[in-house]
């Protein structure tokens, strides 16, 4: 076991980890962060996406010990000061059904909009292409991201 310290959603957190533990498991089981989901456990589905130093990554393919001294943001962090605009349009549009894919998709959409506040539909599709959704057929999700752009800025 080793003590690691990371900046999690703006707060410095210390936690004891075994080198074999993934970030996904440590977030969910030791740090009480339940938004990242385990869909496939092998990088395919995107349900476990979190932002690591501002970039979306698969937390199921990262060892927790690798994140010592790094910055991790999850949906809990994104929603700290209320829902983001894209989260709101997702709710208004009923973008999800079971919602299992939602946290990962919110992470991908947030990364996109941080880098590119006015993406084209193609760019939105590219950004979300690593997130699988078994329920919706994707259209309402894409529409929600598109609608969040109307009236300008995403904050």
């Amino acid at each position: 076991m080793k003590q690691i310290k990371l900046n999690l959603n703006g707060e410095i957190r210390s936690v004891l980890v075994d080198p074999t533990e993934t970030l996904l498991d440590v977030l969910r089981d030791k740090l009480g962060i339940k938004s990242p989901k385990c869909g496939c456990d092998r990088g395919d589905c995107g349900a476990c996406n979190v932002l690591l130093n501002g970039r979306s990554v698969r937390s199921c393919l990262i060892l927790a010990i690798e994140t010592d001294g790094q910055e991790v943001v999850t949906v809990e962090g994104i929603s700290q000061k209320g829902l983001s605009r894209v989260q709101e349009t997702m709710i208004n549009k009923n973008a999800f059904q079971c919602g299992f894919c939602a946290p990962g998709i919110i992470i991908s959409a947030t990364e996109l909009l941080n880098n590119n506040p006015h993406p084209t539909l193609e760019e939105i599709k590219e950004a979300l292409s690593g997130n699988l959704c078994r329920c919706t057929g994707y259209l309402p999700i894409l529409e929600a991201v598109r609608e969040s752009l109307e009236g300008g800025k995403n904050e």
Binding site: G43, G46, N49, L52, R55, S56, V57, R58, L61, I62, S108, E111, E126, A127, S129, G130, N131
Partner: peptide, 9 residues
């Protein structure tokens, strides 16, 4: 290669 979440790593 794959998608952004993989390419970032």
């Amino acid at each position: 290669v794959a998608s952004i979440g993989i390419r970032n790593r």
